[in-house]
Design a protein around this nucleic acid. Structure first.
Length: 110
DNA sequence: CGGGTGACGCATA
DNA sequence: GTATGCGCCACCC
């Protein structure tokens, strides 16, 4: 439920990601104060499937821009399909122009 | 209270 | 640039 847990904190940030932009687990963890807790962010994403409203986890990738969580989606091509729909170029499971489409909550979500 | 897990990140070779 | 290992923090059992 809407617990004030670290989870919902991550969900809230991810939901602020504008279309056509992506962010990394570490960036979110860093914004939350625990820059080394990227794993926790990823773990939160795992529970995002039961979060309401749904969280655009497809906009969250690792520091390499790699779609590490694409295999966790209902269908493995759903994630890149969503990103492509946003205008993000995905090649070989990784986001192209990652640096350009990168969205840093610590800066954009001031 | 203790142990194990995990959609990561960074350091080192 | 690629490969391997360790560390981190929060949640679940």
């Amino acid at each position: 439920m809407a617990d004030d847990n670290f989870f919902e904190r991550v969900y809230e940030v991810v939901r602020q990601i504008p279309a056509g932009r992506v962010t990394s687990y570490g960036a979110i963890g860093h914004f939350l104060g625990s820059k080394r807790s990227a794993r926790v962010v990823g773990y939160a994403m795992g529970a995002a499937g039961g979060a309401r409203p749904p969280v655009p986890a497809h906009r969250v990738v690792n520091s390499q821009g790699l779609l590490t969580g694409k295999f966790h989606f209902p269908t493995f091509d759903l994630m890149e399909q969503m990103l492509a729909s946003e205008g993000i170029v995905v090649e070989d499971n990784k986001v192209q122009n990652f640096k350009t489409v990168f969205w840093d909550p610590s800066i954009e979500l001031l």
